[in-house]
Design a protein around this nucleic acid. Structure first.
Lengths: 134, 134
DNA sequence: GACTTCCTCCGACGCATGTAGTAGGTCTGG
DNA sequence: CCAGACCTACTACATGCGTCGGAGGAAGTC
């Protein structure tokens, strides 16, 4: 049982992603977005998901208008970091190397990203090794 | 509900990882390894996990000796790919760039890995863009 | 003022998963 | 042959999560 920080199910994550993509939204708006994305769930399902996210502190709501408006309290980056860390730990005892190598091998990138990557690698190369706080 | 290929829980994955790390093993050996790693579960728990993994086709067992010996039918790489793909989809609609960039930014690498990375990037840079089969 | 519409609250259900107990078989040392 | 150790099969149970239905309140519409 590792330190499971931002723990949520896939449906919950998808709802959170909606908020990242579209900004603050009501249940109905989130639902609309989910429908547009091909996920056909009931209104109350979206509502439950949002409510659970709020219980976990990942979103917050405020009722200014007729309906509650929900907004993310958790950034996409934080979740990414957390999930990556989990993956790393579960599969490679925390070593990031194999993962990156595989990502680069199997995925594709825009030339901008490649350029960016190159710069980062060069920087890495020059720098002394950091030790992870973990 | 994306094409959830290699679907298993964390405990199951940990058991599978044991098989990757230690090679084919009996329930007792897996259990020992889990205990060594600080996960104190009962014998039957390990057994259940292995059984479920087998039902899903991720490991297979054969009884040559006194006890069943389990071995992975699924490589670490395949699971990695699958999980990464899920992450990518869930967080970035499939774009790999942001993920890699963040990985490189937040994790650390051995000089060998950096070198390897450099080579891969260079190769990427020269090549025409691949289109993902998926 | 009754109808329709939308919203929130609460309860519920089924399946996956983590965890484990128990019954009953087998082997091995005395 | 009997006890202790070890193995497998089966059952069970709590929790998390995805999914919703229904009750009941607020708001605009004739």
């Amino acid at each position: 049982m590792a330190a499971r920080q931002y723990d949520m199910g896939n449906a919950e994550l998808e709802v959170l992603k909606t908020l990242w993509d579209k900004g603050p939204a009501t249940v109905r708006q989130v639902l609309k977005h989910l429908h547009d994305g091909g996920r056909h769930v009931a209104y109350t399902t979206a509502q439950t998901l949002l409510t659970r996210l709020e219980q976990k502190g990942f979103v917050k709501s405020d009722k200014s208008d007729l309906a509650f408006v929900y907004r993310a309290r958790l950034s996409r980056d934080r979740v990414t970091r957390s999930r990556l860390r989990t993956l790393l730990t579960q599969l490679y005892d925390g070593a990031a190397g194999p993962l990156v190598l595989q990502l680069i091998r199997t995925e594709e990138f825009t030339s901008d990203e490649i350029e960016e990557l190159q710069k980062m690698i060069e920087r890495l190369d020059g720098q002394p090794k950091r030790r992870k706080s973990q």
